[in-house]
């Protein structure tokens, strides 16, 4: 469920990046890479889990699924926070710098 949630986040971010490409002022490309990196890593984790659990892998307990969904959503939110912090620090549109300079004047 965690893998599925992050894959959906990666797909949505990639669609948004594609819609605005080649313009990437909002650094959506970085957000895509964050989500795809996590998706690939969780996919490998899922493969190892499948090898260990076999068919039980596809029938998780409802409480376990809910916890994994909650974790996936929290991970997606953390990805957004990381991206937002990077965006504000790199400030590709110079918005933060201009706002600070305006206040100083």
């Amino acid at each position: 469920m965690t893998l599925l949630t992050v894959v959906f986040a990666a797909v949505i971010a990639t669609v948004i990046w594609y819609k605005n490409a080649p313009n990437d002022n909002m650094m959506v490309g970085t957000l895509c890479l964050i989500y795809w990196g996590a998706s690939l890593m969780w996919l490998v984790d899922a493969v190892f889990e499948f090898i260990e659990l076999k068919e039980k892998f596809f029938t998780p307990a409802p409480a376990e699924m809910l916890n994994d969904l909650y974790l996936g959503l929290s991970a997606a939110a953390l990805g957004l926070v990381i991206w937002l912090v990077m965006l504000l620090i790199k400030d590709p549109k110079n918005v933060v710098r201009q706002t600070i300079l305006k206040k100083l004047k």
Binding site: I34, A38, G79
Partner: peptide
């Protein structure tokens, strides 16, 4: 970005 992003979210897990 792929490695740092993935590692950060997995560390959170």
């Amino acid at each position: 970005d792929l490695l740092w992003g993935g590692s950060a979210l997995l560390a959170f897990e």
